[in-house]
Amino acid sequence: MEALSSLHKEAIREFLYKMADDQLILGHRNSEWTGLGPLLEEDIAFSSMAQDKLGHALALYTILHEHLGEKDPDTIAFTRNERELRCCHLVEYPIGGYDFSLTRHFLFDTAEHLRFEMLAGSAFEPLAQVARKIKGEIKYHVLHAQTWMKQLGSATEESKARMQSALNETMPLALGIFEASPFEAELAEHNIFAGEHELRNRWLEVIAPTVADAGLVLPDIDALTPAYGGRQGYHTEYLQPLLTEMTEVFRIDPTVEW
C-alpha cells in the first residue's frame, strides 16, 4: 500500500476503530452466555460466534497496528477507556434475555454481513482481505440468526410477544450502527467503503422480508430516533463498567505477558 495521505489515513483509522470496537464489545457480551444458554447445543453455537467476533476485532486491530502505526491489539483493546471507543450503543447493552440477545445478533450480524460484502472489494487491500476471509463465518451467523427469528417469531404467543418487543427495543439502537462518520466522502471517493447510508439501505432491504417472514412487524423506521453518539465516543452507562470488568486482570500489569 503506497503512502497514505494524512486525511486518508485518519479516515481509515476511524473506520477501522469503529468496526473493530463493535466486534470486540459484542463478542465480549455474547461470550457471557457461554455455559448459561437455553440448550447445550445452542450454547455451543452461540459461543463459537462470540469467538468469531473477537477474532474479527483482532484482525481489524492488527491492521491498525501493522498499517497505521497504532499500538498492538491487546493494548488497544485492554487499555482504552470509554471515551476512546467508537462502538455503537447496540453492542454495549447487557445480554438481557435470549430474546434481546438473539434480536441484537440478528440485526447486527445482518449489517456486518452486508458491510463485509461491500468491503470485499475495498481499495484498502488489507481490509478487503479480511473481508473476503471471514465471509463464510458471517454467512453462518446470519443463517443462525434468521432461523431463530423465524422459529421464535411464529411459535407461541409468548415467544411472538417477546421477539416483537425485543425488536422494538433494539431497532433504534441498531440504527445507531449507521451513524455517519466525518469521513464518509473521503472513504467513498477512494473506493474504500461506499458509506453508512448505503449500507443502511441494503440492510433494511434484507431485514424487512426476514422480519415479515418471521411473522413480526418492523417498527416504523422514520418514527425512530437512532441511538447515535457511539461513533463520537459518547456511550451508554453500560460501556465503562464492561471495560472495567474486561480489563480487570490485564490492568494488574499491562506491561507484561499473561
Binding site: 440448550l39 447445550l40 447445543e41 445452542e42 455451543i44 453455537a45 463459537s48 453462518y140 443463517l143 443462525h144 432461523t147 422459529q151
Partner: peptide, 20 residues
C-alpha cells in the same frame, strides 16, 4: 447426535458441535 426442534436447527447445532 444433537437435540434440536427442527432439522434446520439441528444443522446449525451440528455445524458447531461436530465441525468447529
Amino acid at each position: 447426535s444433537v437435540h434440536a426442534p427442527s432439522a434446520e436447527m439441528a444443522f446449525l447445532f451440528a455445524k458447531e458441535q461436530y465441525g468447529r
